[in-house]
Amino acid sequence: MNLGPSILPVVARNLRDGRFRALACALILALAAHVAPPLSITRTGVAVLAVVDITGSMSVRDYPAAAGPASRIETAKAALRALLPDLPCGSRVALGLFTDRRPFLLFTPVEVCADFAPLDGALAALDPRMAWEGDSRIAAGLFRSVAMAQEIDADLLFVSDGQETPPLPASGGPTFDGKPGAVRGLIVGTGGYGLSPIPRFDDRGRETGFLSETDVQQENRSGPPPADAESREGYNPRNAPFGARAAPGTEHLASVREPYLKRLAAETGLAYAHLDGPGGLAGPLLAAATPRPLPGQFDPRPALGATALALTLLAYLAGPLQRRHRRVGPNVQRAGPIST
């Protein structure tokens, strides 16, 4: 029998039907999602040189943890390892150690996703016993770390407690001769705000108690004496320009030297953040670091699929929803056909 004349108006009418259109759109979107290639986009990542202070004061255990207090170096390591998965893929991390007055580069930047395992392993292996000198001249080390970060084209993440050993002379520390802000990055102040004893180790790396007041230099007596030296007991301009008595002090105890680190940060144009626990570095670092364009991929399929799902559900729910709407509407005449 001849269906032509009767079907065409039906099809034409159905083509205008809202639910048909929703389903047809969903079909097109699902087909598009089936074939859609990932789109190339530019994302932002970071390239960062992490320089970790591994001097003696970083062994201080002043971070509360479930299994007794954790040392600063362990907490800093945990924070750095927790940072890796929070960085966008394509970001690169280099690692350096700091003791004495200079940073020591362990490796140049390594990609954080593909090379996650060795990077994580290298961070886990950081140990204060890698230190080659006992001194801790923070300012000098920081300034040279800034220069190193510039050389390898990375931002700087400088993890330190800010305790200069020996203490800075009365005349002040070294001055930064670079351009402030040329290298961006973050100084991470590590340690509690209260004073804690510093563990001491023998030459085989075994802990043998804590440093006492006389174990460390309490005052730096190189350079000219401070202005108040004349009022000290036993002062003699030639024989005892710093006074006759050993200087008392708290240099054998450690706390995070936040004002000093903040001053250094301001001097070098870096940001400052305090390490509150084994994590939370990603936010301050991403805020302080230079955003670097990375080739990325955007997968359009979830967006297409979600829209298709919403349209299909709409096609199914349009009938009941509209009936409900009509039922509560004022002009209920009859349960007529729905052609949404």
Binding site: A94, L106, V110, A117, A122, R129, A131, W132
Partner: peptide, 17 residues
């Protein structure tokens, strides 16, 4: 002092770094 730079890995990019 000895310093562990990169643990045993097959990720040659990291080793080259």
């Amino acid at each position: 002092a000895p310093m562990l730079v990169m643990p045993m890995t097959d990720r040659h990019g990291a080793v080259r770094a």
